[in-house]
Amino acid sequence: MASGSTQPLADPHRAEIERQCARLVHVYANANDAADWDKVAALYAEDGVMFRPTAAADGVAGRDRILASLRARPPRTTRHVCANVVVDVLSETEATGESAMLLFIGSAKPLVGSFHDRFVLTDEGWRFAERRGSLTFGA
């Protein structure tokens, strides 16, 4: 479901859910740039699915497989800048979100894209049920 296409949850906790989900987006970017793969993988639900912007058709399902996929990456220096984060609360346990992403990789040309996220409330707190990246410019 596209971000902005639902009515916001009329609940006093909506703003807090939005804040927590938006925080996940930013924590993800910082942990990714620090190559803290354990932290990045822990931001997904156990059965979460990750679609990288550079491989948008190839999902990696499950926290353990996501972690293995991240650890298999060659080392690199990156800086992710996330903006225009909009979270739509669907219920007390589900939300969707969209954000713009600018990725700097060393001296390479920056990549510009977006993430479309599905968030779910777990026993560990809010996590990504699905994180689907795509590129608009670059590659």
Rank of each mutant, 00 (worst) to 15 (best):
M1Q: 14
A2S: 10
S3R: 10
S3Q: 15
G4Y: 03
G4A: 04
G4M: 03
S5W: 11
S5Q: 15
Q7M: 14
P8K: 14
P8Y: 14
P8D: 14
L9V: 00
A10I: 04
H13N: 13
H13V: 01
A15D: 14
I17N: 07
I17F: 13
E18S: 00
R19C: 15
Q20Y: 11
C21N: 02
R23Y: 11
H26N: 15
A29R: 04
N30G: 07
N32C: 02
N32V: 00
D33H: 06
A34C: 12
A34Y: 11
A34T: 09
D36S: 13
W37M: 06
W37L: 03
D38Q: 09
K39L: 10
A41H: 11
A42T: 04
L43H: 03
L43A: 01
E46N: 03
G48V: 02
V49S: 14
V49P: 10
M50T: 10
F51N: 00
F51I: 02
R52E: 04
R52T: 00
P53C: 12
A57L: 08
G59A: 13
V60K: 07
D64V: 00
R65P: 01
I66W: 03
L70T: 05
A72L: 08
A72G: 12
R73Q: 15
R76P: 08
T77F: 04
T77N: 11
T78E: 12
R79A: 13
R79M: 12
H80Y: 09
C82D: 05
N84P: 02
N84E: 07
V86G: 09
V87I: 13
D88Y: 07
D88W: 06
V89A: 13
V89C: 15
L90H: 12
S91E: 09
S91M: 05
T93G: 00
E94G: 00
A95W: 09
G97F: 09
E98R: 13
S99I: 01
M101T: 09
M101N: 08
M101E: 08
F104T: 02
F104H: 09
F104N: 05
I105M: 10
G106Y: 07
G106I: 04
S107K: 15
A108L: 15
P110K: 15
L111P: 05
L111G: 07
V112M: 08
G113Y: 08
G113H: 07
S114P: 05
S114E: 12
F115V: 06
F119A: 01
F119I: 01
F119M: 04
L121S: 04
E124Y: 10
G125F: 07
W126R: 08
W126S: 06
A129W: 03
E130T: 15
R131F: 02
G133D: 11
S134Y: 01
T136N: 06
T136V: 13
F137C: 05
F137G: 02
G138A: 03
G138W: 03
A139P: 01
